[in-house]
Amino acid sequence: MKKQADNHMNSITTEEVLRLASMIRIELSDDEVEKLREQLGETIDYIRNLSELDTSNVEAEMTKTELKNISFRDGAPSPRTFSQEDALANAHKTKDGFFVVPKILDK
């Protein structure tokens, strides 16, 4: 159960860590950036072992089920449909029956 490689320091750069943080909409402190760079590097080094397996004849199937053509009927009545009141019940800020969202555009 030990680390597979010791050269993880180069697996992922600080810039990449910051780019990933912005992709998932999270702000990180400097300490977190460094810690995550190291931890993500270790994991990435480990998961690279998949390259040892020959998958040239394997299709990348994205679903595991044997199910086909499963869909909701359009407009089907649903006893579980939310009322407007229920839909808004857990929101932090609402106005006139709407969610209030943070401003994303500047004037």
């Binding site: 990449e16 992709m23 999270i26 702000e27 977190e32 995550l36 931890q39 993500l40 994991t43 990435i44």
Partner: peptide, 16 residues
């Protein structure tokens, strides 16, 4: 920003 460390780590690796 209230996500804990592990959720951040997993989301970032997934994004990667």
């Amino acid at each position: 920003n209230m996500f804990g460390e592990e959720a951040k780590r997993r989301s970032m690796l997934g994004a990667y």
